[in-house]
Amino acid sequence: MSKGFTFFIVVIILFFTGSCEVDDICTKEILTPKLILTFHDASDIETRKEVDTLTVWADNKENFYNKTKTDSIAIPLDMNNDVVHYNFVSNSILDTFQIHYDRKDVFVSRSCGYKMNFTLLNETELTQNWVHDFEIKTQNIENEQTVHIQIYH
């Protein structure tokens, strides 16, 4: 083989170099996001206020949070339904949260398959026993980096 041809082959090989891995790894960040809720002081909504003993569960499910002291929670939405009923208990007082949303399947990659994005609807309701009020801050649930709902208590 002539030198020119060898050089040509080397250039081509460099062009083709690259990994033969199938795909990237699926991490929580790129998959179906959870609903992010933060708890705020009802008299000063800019300030976060912790809930002393918060227990959270969806109807007919186990506790997702159990007597936790926190000012923010992340709860999953039901991918097979357009509505989910959550129960929030603080100091033995119950409030029920009816979350309505639209669902959209989004392709992620070969090895991760699909994820689901949600859009919160205005029918979403929260009873007001220990909770004073709530506000939807971000309608579209596409990641867990933004706060979707603020709860005032």
Binding site: K28, L31, P76, D78, M79, Y114
Partner: peptide, 16 residues
């Protein structure tokens, strides 16, 4: 067909 992943698997898998 495909399924959507949810790491907590609180409500169960979604399959389409």
């Amino acid at each position: 067909s495909y399924s959507a992943l949810d790491f907590d698997n609180y409500f169960g898998e979604y399959f389409a």
